[in-house]
């Protein structure tokens, strides 16, 4: 019984410590992100490299998946709208559900699966192979060189790729609107513009940025928890990715609450 209670206590303390460390890490990252001195040539180079690996390299696959998703999703959604006789709410459903909820969610899911896991492993390997120590010896701040550029490129990538995903879905929506409702393109755009709220678009961008921030911050944070043993790498990746998915759900719920206020 005592062991059981101790177990609960240990787990709670571990959880609290981990949460505190994550918050502290987040705070440090924010400070470095806002510090102009962070952005030296080495950091800029890493930002460009990371943008290439996170956003540009994935682009053909991303567009292909977006188009496929767009065809299925928009087809099903628009057909359902017609069957339920909710054609009058077409704009609100597309703007309020598809473009502000589904698109960011799908984008962040794809990036978390690809880049989040890669970042987590990369940082864990760097930690195990003492490359971070090497940076420290040459007075290169790991926050500036490793963490900040990756997080910044993550933020930019999610925002931009979400834009692409949304545009592809918009195109699919236009196609299906014409097929299902006989809606001309200009009428379709007008409906969307009427339903769109400028503040919602700002919230959408902020949401994407938050997603980008956390799907890169958490893998790096948990990658750094790896010890000097190679066997600690999969554990660090596992924990990191678990936390990434929890973070995605939490952000999604928070954004829903925020937009409903």
């Amino acid at each position: 019984m005592v062991t059981f209670i101790e177990g609960i206590g240990t787990r709670t303390l571990k959880l609290c410590r981990s949460a505190f460390e994550t918050l502290f890490f987040t705070w440090q990252v924010i400070l470095h992100l806002l510090d102009l001195k962070t952005y030296n040539k080495a950091t800029q180079l890493v930002i460009i490299t990371q943008l290439y690996f996170t956003a540009v390299q994935i682009l053909p696959l991303f567009i292909y998946i977006s188009a496929l998703m767009g065809l299925f999703l928009m087809g099903i959604v628009l057909d359902s709208i017609k069957q339920m006789g909710m054609a009058g709410n077409l704009g609100n459903i597309l703007m309020g559900f598809i473009f502000t909820e589904v698109c960011p969610f799908m984008t962040v899911l794809l990036l978390a699966l690809r880049s989040g896991a890669a970042l987590n492993t990369e940082v864990a390997v760097m930690k195990v192979s003492k490359e971070l120590d090497a940076l420290n010896v040459f007075r290169i701040d790991a926050f500036d060189y490793i963490v900040v550029p990756r997080i910044l490129s993550g933020i930019i990538s999610v925002v931009l790729l979400n834009g692409i995903f949304t545009l592809v879905l918009l195109a699919s929506g236009a196609l299906f609107s014409r097929m299902i409702f006989g809606l001309a393109f200009d009428a379709y755009i007008r409906i969307l513009v009427v339903s769109a709220d400028f503040s919602d678009l700002v919230i959408l961008i902020l949401k994407c940025a938050t997603f980008g921030f956390f799907i890169t911050l958490l893998p790096i944070r948990y990658g750094l928890t790896a010890s000097n043993e190679l066997s600690s790498i999969p554990i660090a990746v596992l924990t990191g990715m678990n936390n990434v998915f929890i973070a995605i759900v939490v952000i999604e719920v928070l954004s829903l609450i925020l937009s409903s206020i």
Partner: peptide
């Protein structure tokens, strides 16, 4: 490649937001 990607995507997004605005 990165520059081109950022430029095109940013222009598209900014245009869309600008149009709505």
């Amino acid at each position: 490649k990165v520059g081109l990607f950022i430029l095109i995507t940013s222009v598209l997004i900014v245009s869309a937001i600008g149009y709505v605005a």
